[in-house]
Computed example of a mutant assay.
Amino acid sequence: MTVDPVLQSPAFVDAIRNPEDPNHLMVIKPVMRKIRVFAGETLLADTTNAIRVMEVGRGVYDPVIYVPETSLQSPFSELSKSTHCPIKGDASYVAIGGDEIGWVYKTPLEMSLQLKNHYAFWPDKVRIVEGN
């Protein structure tokens, strides 16, 4: 398979790549500011240890902020839903009040261990505040 020349640039030197498709990749970077996640006025997470995942697959996906489990401020219920990503692993989904709100990688693939026990949220269901 031919790798897109753009995806060979220095910006992607540390990217985690799908072994079956090197054009499917992600870059994980720390967020250098405080992150708070809200559902309405309910604080879901508060952290200075978030990470941002930028992924290229079938297209360029919007960046996603993941917060560590230790930063969660509200209880979540686990749903029976799961999905698989060839560069992240198996995602489990979580809800508040029965409404699916996000996902977590409890046992990510070895190449994506930085995501272990980090939660991400559907952007149309939460408000993310970056900075003070």
Rank of each mutant, 00 (worst) to 15 (best):
M54P: 01
V64H: 05
E55H: 04
D62Q: 13
V64C: 06
T47S: 15
E55W: 03
E55N: 05
M54G: 02
V64T: 04
D62H: 11
I65Q: 07
N49S: 14
M54F: 04
I65H: 08
S71C: 10
V64F: 02
T48I: 11
T70N: 14
S71H: 09
D46Y: 10
T47E: 09
P68D: 08
Y61K: 08
Y66T: 00
L44H: 09
D46K: 15
I51M: 05
N49Y: 13
T47C: 12
I51W: 01
G57V: 01
Y61V: 02
I65M: 09
M54D: 04
V64Y: 00
T48C: 11
L72Y: 07
G57M: 06
V64A: 08
V53D: 04
M54N: 05
R58S: 07
T70C: 11
V60Y: 13
T70W: 13
S74Q: 14
V53G: 03
I65F: 07
V60Q: 12
V53R: 06
D62R: 15
V67M: 12
N49C: 10
E69T: 02
N49Q: 15
S71M: 12
A45M: 15
S71I: 10
G59W: 10
M54K: 05
I65G: 03
N49F: 11
S74C: 13
V60H: 13
Y66Q: 02
R52N: 07
P75M: 01
E55Q: 08
S71A: 15
T47G: 09
Y61E: 05
Y61T: 00
T47H: 11
D46C: 13
Q73E: 08
P63G: 00
Q73A: 10
I65K: 13
P63S: 01
E69P: 02
I51G: 00
Y61A: 05
N49W: 09
V60R: 14
R58K: 11
Y66S: 02
P68T: 04
E69Y: 07
P68L: 11
L72A: 06
V64S: 07
V60T: 08
A50V: 09
A50L: 10
L44M: 14
A45N: 12
T48R: 15
R58I: 03
R52W: 03
A45T: 08
V67Y: 08
L72S: 08
L72G: 04
G57Y: 03
E69G: 04
G57C: 08
P63A: 00
P63D: 00
A50T: 07
T70H: 14
G57T: 01
S71F: 06
L44K: 13
M54A: 04
P68C: 10
Q73H: 07
T70F: 12
M54R: 06
A45W: 12
